[in-house]
Design a protein around this nucleic acid. Structure first.
Lengths: 111, 111
DNA sequence: TCCATATTTCAATAATCGTTGAAATATTAT
DNA sequence: ATAATATTTCAACGATTATTGAAATATGGA
């Protein structure tokens, strides 16, 4: 992962609303949630601002959007998430055995 | 961890220089590095800006500073780092078994 | 004490980011 | 086609964050 990519992703997460959206999507799993459901869960309005925040998460590579009927479902890009976490912790303590940067979330093995 | 704390930490990391400082400190382990060594490793100047960035990392709780003689050593707060990573991945996939938010770095068990 | 090294503080300016509200687009049902 | 629901786009303004350079502080050695 490039530094610039990580900075963009971290910048996207460094915002109260976007961070909670991200965490909500992480919890939601691979199926994701529609914009309306996201707004409902976070008790905010499904307006232009939410739309903008979701776009930021997608632009940062942390989420993906897919259209289904008249709904748009957003979901976490778990690969990107794990890459970011690995980038942050890479070669921890000079590579000494003190914990490993495992994949924190592997939705492919979810039931 | 509170949302606000996480936003502050992520904001501190969402900057190219600070992110590389953080990663350098993660690699350096609990002993940390002096400001001069950090500047040397990243090929930047040990000036007011570096000082500012280091202060930001400390203010965000991601690093700690300790004075030793005329040097100031900065090191990662691994507990804060792990808390942040856990906050980001909490209850992944609705809590289904798909990877666990283990401590990524445990400097207390480093040689 | 005086000097060199190490690091920080401060103020001004430039750049980026966030919010608001209204209008626009897209999809589905009647 | 019309209406209803779902979501996005845009522009203007205000707020926050970054950079620069110079001066200030602190520590240890000669």
């Amino acid at each position: 992962m490039e530094s610039k990519t990580a900075v963009t992703a971290l910048g996207a997460l460094a915002h109260a609303t976007r961070l909670e959206i991200f965490r909500l999507l992480v919890r939601a799993g691979a199926a994701g949630l529609s914009v309306g459901k996201i707004a409902e869960a976070l008790v905010i309005e499904a307006n232009g601002r939410l739309s903008f925040h979701l776009k930021e998460l997608v632009a940062a590579g942390l989420a993906v959007a897919r259209q289904e009927g008249r709904f748009i479902y957003y979901s976490t890009d778990y690969t990107a998430m794990n890459e970011l976490l690995r980038y942050l912790t890479e070669d921890c303590c000079g590579g000494q055995p003190c914990g490993e940067a495992v994949d924190l979330c592997q939705p492919e093995i979810c039931p």
